[in-house]
Each structure stands twice: as structure tokens, then as C-alpha cells.
């Protein structure tokens, strides 16, 4: 029994990481109806950036965040204003095609630069540290990851619903023309949204790189997990996304407990079950 409880708790913590994969996707889709196929590869790019930073500067991955987060955010702004804004319009196909192309480019650049060998970020003692909670042993890193996920989502939620920036996001999302009348330059607003999304991607990438090994090809899988978390939780609801991540994580760890080869499939099955019962996800945003 305690083993199952342990698996569930591990799954919940894993869900925090998936929610981080998903938060940026959700934000971007919410503000500009853009489905970013390259999202997973950007997470892996951030992990490699973390790798280079930790190696070059000989610092802990957490310290590398101080560099990777602003660099990814800057990259997001430039990417949005330089390329992605040009693809946005009534047709939803161009942004899909362009971000798909971007995904391929990122993978190839990473492959050329870092080879296909799996790499990992050296987190040091924190990787093996654990706490014992009534018979369940929990890793400090997964706990910390979950805490960071909750904090990130709380901050995004605050920005979205309590700040002038967030009002701008919501206004542009509602009606781009009328938002322009308010003095909001949508090209800039979209740039800022992408910067914010990639700042979250940077955090996700570093935490992923400390937790497991990564190689240039695994971005697609992270994209799928992110998507599933967003859809399970319900589009446009950030806390729902966290719940979606947790459901996915728990399904995977329980699946792995039944049979290690069953882990990923169990997640997909949970996703399909939720989708069959609640096509709009568990907590879709209610338009008021």
C-alpha cells in the first residue's frame, strides 16, 4: 500500500515539471492563439544552455538560471517580433509550419553542437538528498521542482489577472484591433508574452536537465506532455494546467509501477480518458 502511495506522491511531484512544460504553451496559446510546435525543443535548448553555462562558469545549475532565464526571454522576444508575428493572421497553418520548421532547426543545431550523446546537468548533493515523510521517501529535487512549479504558476496567474501587463495580454487576446486603440502595440505585447513563456521554458529546461539525462531528440516528447497537461486541465486555466500536469504525472508513475514499459502509455491513456469524458478539459476557462 505504502508503495502505491509513494508512486502517487512521486507522480504529483513529477506533475509539477509537466505543468512547467505546459505553462508557456498555455500562455502563448491564450494570448495569441499560437500553437508552438518548437516548445519542447526550446525546453531542451534551455537545458543545453544550462549545461554550457554550468561547465563554462563552473556554477550550479540553479545559478545558471540567472543567465539562461534572461537569455531565453530575450530570444523569445526577438523570435516573436522577428519571425512569429509575421505568421499570425486568420490562417492558423503558417504559425504551425514555421514553428515546426523551427523545431527541426533547433534539433539539428543542438545535434551539431552537442552530438547525440545524452547529457545531464550536475546538481550535486541535492540530486540524491531526500526527506522521509512517514515511510515515504521523497527526493528534495522533485519536491523543489514542484514548489517552483507552484510558484511560477502563482506568479503567472498574478501577472495575468492583477497587473497592467496582464490586462494587456487579456485585451489583445480578446480583440486585437480594439486593444491597439488603447495604445497597445500588439507586436510588442506578443513579444513580451513569448519572452515570459520562454523564461518559464528556461526554468523547465534546467529542472529537467537536473532530473534526467537529455539529448537533442527528446523535445517532441516534452511538447506532448505539455500539450496533454494543458488539455487535461482545460485551455486558458493556469491552475487547471497544474492539475493536468499532476494527473499526467500520477498516471505515469502508477503505470510505471505496474510495468516500467507502461509509464508513457499510461499517461496517454489518462489523457484520452479525460478527453473522452470532458472534451474541454477539467477546468476550461468560463467566458464571463
Amino acid at each position: 500500500m505504502i508503495e502505491w502511495t509513494g508512486a502517487i506522491v512521486q507522480g504529483i511531484l513529477l506533475g509539477g515539471l509537466y505543468a512547467l512544460f505546459a505553462a508557456g504553451l498555455s500562455l502563448i496559446f491564450g494570448v495569441m492563439r499560437l500553437v508552438n510546435i518548437a516548445h519542447g525543443d526550446l525546453i531542451i535548448l534551455a537545458a543545453y544552455m544550462g549545461l554550457t553555462t554550468t561547465v563554462l562558469l563552473d556554477v550550479h545549475p540553479f545559478l545558471a538560471l540567472l543567465i539562461v532565464v534572461p537569455v531565453m526571454a530575450g530570444l523569445g522576444y526577438v523570435l516573436q517580433r522577428g519571425i512569429l508575428n509575421r505568421t499570425l493572421g486568420d490562417d492558423i497553418l503558417p504559425p504551425l509550419l514555421v514553428t515546426f520548421g523551427l523545431s527541426v532547426i533547433i534539433q539539428n543545431v543542438l545535434l551539431e553542437t552537442y552530438t547525440a550523446d545524452p547529457r545531464k546537468l550536475a546538481g550535486g548533493a541535492i540530486e540524491t538528498a531526500s526527506v522521509d515523510l512517514g515511510g515515504i521517501t521523497l527526493g528534495v529535487l522533485p519536491l523543489l521542482t514542484f514548489g517552483i512549479a507552484v510558484a511560477v504558476i502563482a506568479v503567472l496567474q498574478f501577472i495575468f489577472y492583477r497587473t497592467s501587463l496582464g490586462r494587456g495580454f487579456r485585451a489583445v487576446s480578446d480583440n486585437q484591433d480594439i486593444a491597439q486603440l488603447m495604445g497597445l502595440n500588439k507586436a510588442h505585447v506578443f513579444g513580451v508574452a513569448m519572452a515570459l513563456a520562454l523564461a518559464v521554458v528556461a526554468i523547465a529546461g534546467i529542472l529537467l536537465g537536473m532530473r534526467t539525462s537529455f539529448d537533442p531528440a527528446i523535445g517532441g516528447g516534452r511538447l506532448i506532455f505539455g500539450f496533454e497537461a494543458v488539455i487535461i486541465g482545460g485551455l486558458g486555466n493556469l491552475w487547471g494546467t497544474l492539475v493536468g500536469g499532476v494527473i499526467l504525472g500520477v498516471a505515469q508513475t502508477i503505470g510505471a509501477k505496474i510495468d516500467p514499459g507502461f509509464q508513457i502509455l499510461a499517461g496517454h491513456i489518462a489523457f484520452l480518458i479525460v478527453l473522452a469524458i470532458r472534451p474541454n478539459g477539467l477546468f476550461p476557462r468560463v467566458e464571463h
Binding site: S164, G168, I178, G183
Partner: peptide
């Protein structure tokens, strides 16, 4: 803006 409350609609008018 449907996602904004009445007051938020007014506030965004004063954005500049």
C-alpha cells in the same frame, strides 16, 4: 473586452 471587468476595461483605456 469580455475577459476584463468593468473597471479593468476603464483602466486599460487609461493605459497610455
Amino acid at each position: 473586452f469580455p475577459s476584463l471587468s468593468v473597471e479593468e476595461n476603464l483602466m486599460i483605456g487609461g493605459k497610455l
